[in-house]
Design a protein around this nucleic acid. Structure first.
Length: 785
DNA sequence: GTTAGGGTT
C-alpha cells in the first residue's frame, strides 16, 4: 500500500482540530523528548518548524499502522482508540534516532525539517479562508436564492456520490456551490473542480468567486483554460473548460487530487460535456473519494439522473423577473423573418417605454441588413424630438472583443440601444438592461457530414428550450416582454423539444483519438448519454488510421500517442510532429498556431464595408505565391520585426490580439515539442518542406481546378459531388491565373462549398507524407498522386 | 466570383 500525500494531509488537518490527541501517544512524546503535559502545539513549536514536523511524523506513524494492521481506512479510528495506549513509534526517516542530549544531531534534524517545510503545503481545507469582502458584494451574495437552501445542499452533497442540481438563471449556482462546499470542508480529499463550456465563463467565474472570497484570482480560486493557467499550490477551487477536463483524464485517469467535480451548464450538451459524463461514470467506480455534481437548467434533469444511476435531483429556484410573451398571428418562414424583425424592432421602439431591445437573428448578414433597414426607417420618422433616439449595436461571435465590449457600455442619455445579435447573446453574453426581446425563431447550426467530411451551416428552427432561454434575456434586471415572430401553437406543436447534442453532429477525430489514448479500445462500447453516429465514428477511425495514429488493428501507435499530447486537432498535431523530421518545425509551429485559432479573425472586420479595400491591400502585401499558410509566416515575422507593435497592427488592419494569441500558442507548443524531444529547426526560405509537412495532415483535402473558378475534389470521388470554391477571405482568391491544384485547411458549406486556408502543393508529396492514405487511394485510383 | 451560428483541446 502506498501512502498518498492527500491522506497524510487530511489526517494532519484532523489532528490540528484535536491537538491533544497525538501528544497523548507516549512513545511519540518520548521520541521527541517532550514533557508529559505537552500538547500538539508544543510538539511542533518546540522544534520551531511547524507543520512539516507533524507531516513527517504522521507519515511514519501512518505507515507503521498500515504495516501492522493492513488497513488504511481505520487509521483515525485506531489512533483514537489507542490514544492512551502505547503506540509503537520510532523516529521517522530523515530524523534519525533522536538523542535529546546530542545537540549536533538535533540541530541537524531541525535544519533538515526547516528545509522540508519550505516545500510543505497545508491541506486544502485549512487553506480555505475567506478574506475581506466589499459591502456591496456581500449584499449581492446574501440575496441569491441559493442561500436559502445552502444547508440542505451541503447535506445532499455529503450524502450522495452524484447529485443533479437544477437551477434557473440567476440562482447563483455557478458561483456559490463550489464556495459552499469548500467552506463546509468538502475539499478535504482534493480540489473542487468546476467545468464550463466556455473559456470566458471559466475565467470570469474564477474572478467573481475570488472577489466573493476576498482574494485575488490564482490563489484560493483559480482557472485553467487551453494555453492559459492561473492556479497555484494554494488553489482549492479550480474553474476550467470541459474540454480541458477531458485532457486531464489523459494525464490523471482517476482524477486523483479532486474531491468534487461540478459539471456546469450540462444542459448545453457540448461535445466535451458529453465525454466528461461518460468518463465520470467510469471514474466514480475507480475513485471512491470522488463526488460529482451535474448542474443544469431544468431541461433533461430526469435523463441526467437516470444516466447517473438515478442520482437525486436538487432544485434551486431562480431570480428572474416576469416576461410577458407576445406571439405573432402567423409563423414566418425563412424569407420573411428579417422584415418581421425590422418591423417589430421599429414598432417596439416607437410604442414602448424605455429599455433596450435585443433581437435574435441567425447570422451576420441578417444583422447587417437589419441594421440598415432599421436605420433608414427610423431616420425618416425620427423628426419628432420627444421620441427616444436609437443606437444600433451589432453583436456576433466573429466581432473583435473591443467591439463586443460596446454592448456593455451604458447607453447615452436619451438613447435606446437596439442590440442585433446571433446566438452569442443566448448563452455566452449577458447584455445588461434588456427589457424587450425580439425572437425570429431561427438559428444557424453546423452539421458535419461524415460521408463527405464537409461541415455545413444550416438554418434551423429554434428548440422550445431555446425559445425560453431567449425570452429569459428580457427578465434579468426588471420585468420584460418577448415578441415572438411565430405562433404559440407552432412553438408547442412544431418546434423541436430538444436539439441534436453536439456529439451527434460533429467531427469525432479528436474524440476518438483521446478516448483511445485513455485506454478505451472500443469506442463503440463507451457509454455516451447519446450515442454518436456510427458512421461518424468509423470515419474518424479511418482518418486516424490514414494519419498513422492507429494501426491496421485500430490500436494506438507511438505516433498517435505523440499526437494526442498536443491540444490540437489530430491533423494539425500530425503536421506539427511531421515537421521535425522535415526540418521545418520552426515555420510549421507558426502556421499551426495560426490555424488553431478559430472564432477570431486575423484581419480586422471593423467598419467592414468602408475598410474592405484597405484590408485587401494589406493582405496582398503579406501574401505569398504558395498560399495562405506561407502568408501567415510573413505576417508573423513582420509583426515580430515591428516589435509586436499594436500601432503596426492597426496600420496593417491586423488583429493584435490574434497575433498575441499566436505567440502564446507557439511558445507553449514549442515547450511541448521539447518535452517530446521533437527538434525545432528552421528551413529558412525553403517553402517546399513546409508545404510537404502540410500534406502530412491535410492530404485528404486536395482539389483540382475544373472550370474557370471552380474545383473538384481530388481524387474525384463520388462521395463529394459539386464544385468547391476558394473562399473570398483567402489571399489566393484574387490570384491569377487561378491555381490548378490546391490543398485546403478547412471546408465549409454556406451558399457554396468554400475552401479556406489554401496552400499550393504537389500531389506527389502525398506518397511520402501520408503513405497509408496514398496506398489506399492508389488501389482505387491508379493515377492518384 | 465576393464572405462569416455558437463553442473547445
Amino acid at each position: 500500500m502506498t501512502l498518498s500525500a492527500e491522506n497524510v494531509t487530511a489526517i494532519v488537518d484532523k489532528l490540528y482540530q484535536n491537538e491533544t490527541l497525538i501528544a497523548k501517544v507516549p512513545k511519540l512524546r518520548a521520541a521527541l523528548g517532550l514533557p508529559d503535559s505537552a500538547e500538539w502545539k508544543t510538539l511542533y513549536s518546540s522544534f520551531g518548524v511547524g507543520r512539516v514536523t507533524a507531516h513527517t511524523l504522521l507519515t511514519h506513524i501512518f505507515s507503521e499502522w498500515v504495516e501492522k494492521n493492513g488497513e488504511e481506512a481505520n487509521f483515525m479510528e485506531g489512533l483514537t482508540i489507542r490514544q492512551d495506549n502505547n503506540m509503537a513509534v520510532s523516529p521517522p526517516p530523515g530524523l534519525g534516532k533522536l538523542d535529546p542530549g546530542n545537540t549536533m544531531q538535533s540541530e541537524l534534524a531541525k535544519y533538515r525539517m526547516r528545509r522540508m517545510e519550505q516545500t510543505w503545503t497545508p491541506s486544502l481545507n485549512s487553506r480555505f479562508r475567506i478574506g475581506q469582502i466589499p459591502e456591496q458584494i456581500q449584499q449581492q451574495i446574501s440575496s441569491l436564492p441559493i442561500l436559502s437552501v445552502k444547508a440542505e445542499l451541503i447535506e445532499a452533497v455529503k450524502k450522495n456520490r452524484v447529485l443533479i442540481v437544477v437551477g434557473e438563471a440567476g440562482s447563483g449556482k455557478s458561483t456559490q456551490i463550489p464556495k459552499y462546499l469548500a467552506e463546509a470542508g468538502l475539499a478535504e480529499a482534493g480540489l473542487i473542480g468546476c467545468t464550463q463550456p466556455r473559456r470566458i465563463a471559466a475565467k470570469s467565474l474564477a474572478e467573481r468567486v475570488s472577489v466573493e472570497c476576498g482574494t485575488t484570482v490564482g490563489g484560493l480560486i483559480g482557472y485553467v483554460i487551453r494555453f492559459e493557467k492561473c492556479v497555484s499550490a494554494d488553489t482549492v477551487i479550480k474553474f476550467m473548460t470541459d474540454g480541458l477536463l477531458v485532457r486531464e483524464f489523459i494525464l490523471n485517469p482517476n482524477l486523483s487530487g479532486y474531491s468534487i467535480l461540478i459539471i456546469d451548464e450540462a444542459h448545453e450538451r457540448t461535445k466535451y460535456t458529453d465525454i466528461c459524463f461518460g468518463l465520470l461514470r467510469n471514474v466514480l467506480n475507480e475513485n471512491p473519494n470522488l463526488k460529482v455534481i451535474i448542474s443544469s437548467a431544468t431541461l433533461d434533469k430526469e435523463r441526467f439522473s437516470a444516466y447517473f444511476d438515478n442520482a437525486p435531483i436538487f432544485t434551486v429556484s431562480g431570480n428572474m423577473f416576469e416576461v410577458e410573451e407576445i406571439y405573432d398571428q402567423f409563423s414566418r418562414d425563412q424569407l420573411s423573418y428579417l422584415s418581421g424583425v425590422v418591423d417589430k424592432v421599429c414598432s417596439v421602439h416607437f410604442n414602448e417605454g424605455p429599455g433596450h431591445i435585443l433581437a435574435f437573428l441567425p447570422g451576420q448578414s441578417d444583422i447587417e441588413k437589419a441594421s440598415e433597414q432599421i436605420l433608414s426607417r427610423t431616420r425618416n420618422l425620427m423628426g419628432s424630438r420627444h421620441l427616444l433616439k436609437m443606437k444600433i449595436v451589432q453583436c456576433y461571435g466573429l466581432l473583435s472583443l473591443e467591439r463586443q465590449n460596446e454592448i456593455f457600455k451604458p447607453a447615452e442619455e436619451g438613447y435606446r440601444n437596439v442590440v442585433l445579435a446571433t446566438n452569442v447573446a443566448e448563452t455566452s453574453l449577458t447584455i445588461p438592461g434588456i427589457r424587450f426581446v425580439v425572437d425570429c425563431g431561427f438559428f444557424k447550426q453546423s452539421e458535419y457530414d461524415p460521408n463527405t467530411g464537409i461541415e455545413e451551416l444550416k438554418m434551423k428552427r429554434i428548440t422550445q428550450p431555446q425559445a425560453t432561454q431567449r425570452k429569459g434575456r428580457a427578465g434579468r434586471t426588471e420585468k420584460g416582454k418577448v415578441y415572438r415572430l411565430y405562433t404559440k401553437s407552432d412553438l408547442i406543436s412544431t418546434f423541436p423539444s430538444t436539439g441534436l447534442p453536439e456529439i451527434q453532429r460533429s467531427n469525432l477525430e479528436s474524440v476518438v483519438l483521446q478516448l483511445t489514448v485513455m485506454g478505451f479500445k472500443d469506442v463503440f462500447k463507451f457509454q455516451f448519454m447519446d450515442t454518436p453516429r456510427s458512421d461518424a465514428v468509423c470515419e474518424a477511425l479511418e482518418k486516424l488510421q490514414d494519419l498513422s495514429a492507429l494501426d491496421e488493428e485500430m490500436r494506438l501507435t507511438p505516433m498517435g500517442r505523440q499526437m494526442a499530447q498536443f491540444p490540437l486537432d489530430p491533423s494539425l498535431a500530425k503536421i506539427l510532429v511531421s515537421s521535425s523530421k522535415l526540418r521545418c518545425s520552426e515555420e510549421v509551429l507558426i502556421i499551426v498556431s495560426f490555424l488553431s485559432i478559430q472564432n477570431q479573425s486575423l484581419f480586422n472586420q471593423e467598419n467592414y464595408q468602408a475598410t474592405k479595400d484597405l484590408v485587401k491591400a494589406s493582405m496582398h502585401k503579406f501574401s505569398h505565391r504558395s498560399g495562405d499558410q506561407l502568408m501567415y509566416i510573413n505576417i508573423y515575422e513582420e509583426w515580430r520585426s515591428a516589435g509586436r507593435s499594436k500601432h503596426w497592427c492597426v496600420q496593417n488592419h491586423l488583429n493584435a490580439q490574434f497575433l498575441e494569441e499566436v505567440q502564446n500558442i507557439k511558445d507553449q507548443l514549442a515547450e511541448m515539442m521539447k518535452g517530446l524531444h521533437l527538434p525545432i529547426v528552421s528551413c529558412g526560405s525553403n517553402t517546399v518542406a513546409v508545404r510537404q509537412a502540410m500534406c502530412a495532415g491535410f492530404f485528404r483535402q486536395l482539389a483540382k481546378r475544373r472550370g474557370q473558378y471552380d474545383y473538384a475534389k481530388y481524387p474525384d470521388s463520388d462521395r463529394v459531388r459539386g464544385s468547391f470554391f476558394i473562399h473570398p477571405s483567402s489571399s489566393m482568391f484574387p490570384v491569377r491565373p487561378v491555381p490548378s491544384f490546391v490543398m485546403y485547411a478547412e471546408m465549409f458549406r454556406t451558399s457554396k462549398m468554400y475552401m479556406k486556408g489554401i496552400t499550393i502543393i504537389d500531389p506527389s508529396w502525398v506518397a511520402s507524407e501520408a503513405p497509408i492514405y496514398y496506398k489506399k487511394m492508389r488501389a482505387l485510383y491508379p493515377n492518384f498522386g
